[in-house]
């Protein structure tokens, strides 16, 4: 085990907030413990000497997966909108947005 700061209850509350999850006090306690175990496991990797290992972007050694710029199949609009909870004027109707796009 390396000397990394342990995950706090505040960290979990912050991440839950970013994900718009509302956790009860009991859930916060439960997940703080569970997530800490997961992170401790990942922290084991930090014990290894990886100075000569370049950062890996992907598990597979594959690069440049590309497609030609040719139109494909779109989905029928009525079918798409039928799956939405609320629709107006052929657009998705969503709850009032506070503030602007990030």
């Amino acid at each position: 085990m390396v000397d990394t700061p342990r995950l706090t209850r505040e960290d979990v509350a912050h991440v839950a907030g970013l994900a718009r999850l509302h956790l009860s006090d009991e859930e916060l306690d439960l997940f703080t413990g569970q997530l800490a175990v997961v992170l401790d496991h990942a922290a084991d990797v930090a014990l290894l000497d990886l100075a000569d290992v370049p950062p890996t972007a992907h598990a597979m050694a594959v690069i440049n997966v590309l497609r030609p710029d040719i139109p494909g199949q779109t989905v029928d609009r009525e079918e798409v909108l039928a799956a939405a909870p609320s629709v107006e004027d052929h657009r998705f109707r969503v709850p009032r947005i506070l503030g602007e796009a990030p």
């Binding site: 494909g72 989905v75 657009r91």
Partner: peptide
């Protein structure tokens, strides 16, 4: 100014009817 979107084959077109250039990827 590509013909299609960045990660799917939907047309990259300004001014079309709303939600007509969509597919599972861009949705």
């Amino acid at each position: 100014k590509t013909t299609t979107k960045l990660f799917c084959g939907c047309p990259n077109m300004f001014g079309n009817e709303p939600n007509t250039n969509v597919c599972p990827v861009c949705l």
